[in-house]
Design a protein around this nucleic acid. Structure first.
Length: 331
DNA sequence: CTTCAACCCTGGCAGC
DNA sequence: TGCTGCCAGGGTTGAA
């Protein structure tokens, strides 16, 4: 399940394989990836619009906030004329991406057989990465998604509401409109851990639910929430509002640390649902302390790990290292 | 304003 | 064997 480290690993692969190259062709095999995750009503002409907006454009960069990815498109060359799809004097556009539960980008040569979960293909032209075989550089960027919770779109970039007053420099300081509500993630340079901690303490939910709220702090998903809470020795059902601020700061710092550590190992792969753009798996699964380890001994004290449901998500705790809150409450 | 539950989706698995 | 039902969990939406 892609969380921040997995999405950043994908972004890194796209920086190598897609940035600086031009999209020469677009094929959408399943239009549902162009809708939002909860509304599968695909507007008439959505495939045609997506194709027209993307074809011929150069991918200028690869950006990420939390679990959201976007690829700003270079300004179109030449003077704009009525009838042309893109007005270069208009707002800059980006290919926005969310991997959902099972989205992947894979680089391929056209001769490679199509995986049955391939939902869209972008043909890429222009120089590939230096390390690629110049005789046969992969020229297809394929978007695979088993469960179709992922999303692709082309949309305008807007000023980052989380950096008020910041002067955009090119497309830096801009975010896709569909991600404008997403809070900064712990790996961003300007991440304000103190302010996020205070905001979490004002919530009336379980601490884990607060950690998973992407409008408060982004990038943390079910795996890293469990790992961060274990590292900080806090139970996921601890009420956010009555947890000491020092402990809230500790769990945020733990989330930052565990996600950086995972990123160094290429992210967490349980199965074929998360792989890098070249098909490789990440290696952090073997470093997980509690997630998915129900019944196995706590690496710190040996007590068997137990599983409970918090906010509708499975949660994994060491019942000894993470003492339950005094007043049992509903997740 | 905040919080909550339904919904979107496929594949793997348990149970019959 | 083959069917049914449940579960996994990103995010959005609208109701309370």
């Amino acid at each position: 399940m892609p969380e921040l480290p997995e999405v950043e690993s994908v972004a890194s692969g796209l920086r190598t394989w897609a940035a600086g190259r031009r999209v020469t062709g677009v094929r959408v095999f399943d239009p549902r990836i162009l809708g939002t995750t909860s509304n599968r009503t695909i507007a008439a002409g959505a495939v045609e619009e997506f194709t027209e907006l993307l074809t011929g454009r150069e991918i200028a960069a690869v950006e990420r906030r939390g679990k959201f990815l976007w690829l700003p498109l270079a300004p179109e060359r030449g003077p704009w004329r009525p009838g042309r799809a893109v007005d270069p004097s208009g707002p800059p556009l980006a290919l926005s991406v969310h991997l959902g539960m099972s989205g992947q980008f894979r680089v391929h040569t056209p001769a490679d057989p199509l995986h049955r979960h391939t939902r869209a293909v972008l043909d890429l032209a222009g120089p590939g990465p230096a390390e690629a075989d110049p005789a046969a550089p992969p020229t297809e960027l394929r978007f695979l998604d088993q469960r179709i919770f992922g999303h692709l779109g082309v949309e305008p970039l807007v000023p980052d509401p989380h950096r008020p007053g910041a002067q955009p420099d090119g497309t830096a300081g801009l975010v896709p409109g569909s991600a404008a509500h997403i809070a900064p993630d712990p790996l961003e340079p300007g991440f304000d851990l103190e302010a996020v901690g205070r905001r979490i303490q004002r919530k009336r939910t379980a601490l884990k639910v607060a950690l998973l709220d992407q409008t408060t702090v982004s990038g943390i998903g079910n795996i890293y929430a469990d790992e961060a809470l274990f590292a900080a020795g806090i139970h996921p059902l601890a009420p956010a509002g009555s947890t000491r601020i020092s402990r809230i700061r500790a769990v945020l710092a733990a989330a930052d640390a565990v996600m950086r550590s995972s990123l160094e190992q290429g992210g967490t792969s349980f199965d074929a649902l998360y792989v890098h753009v070249n098909g490789d798996s990440g290696y952090f699964a073997r470093s997980l302390q509690v997630y998915g380890r129900t019944g196995r001994p706590c690496p710190r004290c040996g007590t068997p790990i137990t599983r409970l449901t918090v906010g509708g998500r499975s949660s994994h705790v060491c019942p000894a290292c993470q003492r339950p809150p005094r007043r049992a409450r509903i997740g």
